[in-house]
Design a binder for these strands. Structure first.
Lengths: 196, 196
DNA sequence: CTACATGTGGCACTCAGTGTCACTTCAAGG
DNA sequence: CCTTGAAGTGACACTGAGTGCCACATGTAG
């Protein structure tokens, strides 16, 4: 069967749909691209698009939740000998270490997420699970409750450092993202008095 | 002229419209209230509503920008003898010190802003100017650039402490918000090694 | 009384997001 | 080979936010 009755160009995965959307956003801007446009380009209907994404805002995020799960696993697997700060440092750098082949796409994605107001706002909701993973780890390591003030404030600070790093990286594409992150995290660690 | 031709009940200020909206949100929930509902309750048209607010999401914020301006002024007026940390501490507590008569409304407003997902997301954009004011002050005091990493990370941490305080306060209405904030800020200050 | 600036309402339009239902695809089991 | 059921898809209609445009009212300065 050389030709399926279904259009073989039909895109039916979150990852691929995200790529198609990203391409259109690059061409026409985020606001300038309608869900209809993405659906058409992917060979599916508008209705079907919303079965893959809860909202247009989620397109640039792709499979983010999977990555957060990986971060959580990474942290849990840290040997007890490694300090909390060192563990977070390594896990966060690793979290943002994308293969060369994907770096362009990743930059483009982050450029949108950090500069389009609607997406900046929406990011808060997506980042919440990331911060939660960090906060849980800090709480577990320090033996305090996750509901305590400190884990959350610190996880916010880590998010801030990450975002600040991305902003530097987007302005200076030459430097390695992981290098910037490494520096930012080091700066952050020097801000904390007690060993976390 | 006992009766103006214009409906005297017509509401024509951001502050009052915000109050009308808040009341409806309390009754029917944020999602359960349409802009049309608010406009009707305020005696104006839907079109006019959008001349007061850029979006429905801005209703709970009311005149926030004015408050941020006041924060900025407060910080600038700080005598040079007061440390950066102490100045921020005082200014932030003051920023959140509402008169008794408005406390109920303020609690209701914050309850929405911290619990309705769309509003949580949108808050990021509104808080940005607050953080900017903090970051500018820190940068000025430490003689570094506002573009530097540290002012931003620290301002994020202050925001996190504020939000965490509000969450505590919303769960335990008995305690004073300013007291919770005071405690949270003290905790935060102990996290910083160098004098900011 | 006129002229001009500002505020308002009505209307039509775009687009995101949702509920419903009919249709297709495909795999499992007779 | 046929049936049955589950899962994915598309068409359609609808709600609601937000915008552009234009006509009308109000208020103020000359």
């Amino acid at each position: 069967m050389p030709e399926s009755p279904v259009d073989s160009r039909r895109v039916t995965s979150v990852a691929e749909l995200s790529r198609v959307g990203l391409e259109l956003f690059l061409q026409n801007g985020f606001e300038g691209t309608t869900v209809e446009d993405i659906a058409t380009a992917a060979g599916i209907s508008r209705r079907t698009f919303f079965r893959y994404f809860a909202s247009k805002n989620d397109v640039p995020w792709g499979d983010f939740d999977v990555l957060v799960d990986r971060l959580r696993t990474h942290l849990r697997a840290t040997p007890a000998g490694v300090s909390t700060i060192a563990a977070l440092h390594a896990a966060i750098v690793d979290f943002n270490d994308y293969p060369k082949a994907e770096q362009d796409r990743h930059r483009q994605r982050m450029d949108l997420l950090l500069n389009v107001p609607v997406l900046v706002a929406h990011s808060t909701l997506r980042y919440a699970s990331w911060r939660q993973a960090i906060a849980e780890f800090i709480a577990a390591r320090s033996g305090t409750s996750v509901a305590a003030l400190r884990p959350h404030v610190v996880s916010w600070a880590y998010q801030a450092a990450s975002i600040a790093s991305y902003e530097v990286w987007l302005r200076q594409p030459r430097v390695e993202l992981t290098a910037v992150l490494d520096e930012a995290l080091t700066t952050l660690e020097q801000e904390f008095r007690r060993p976390a």
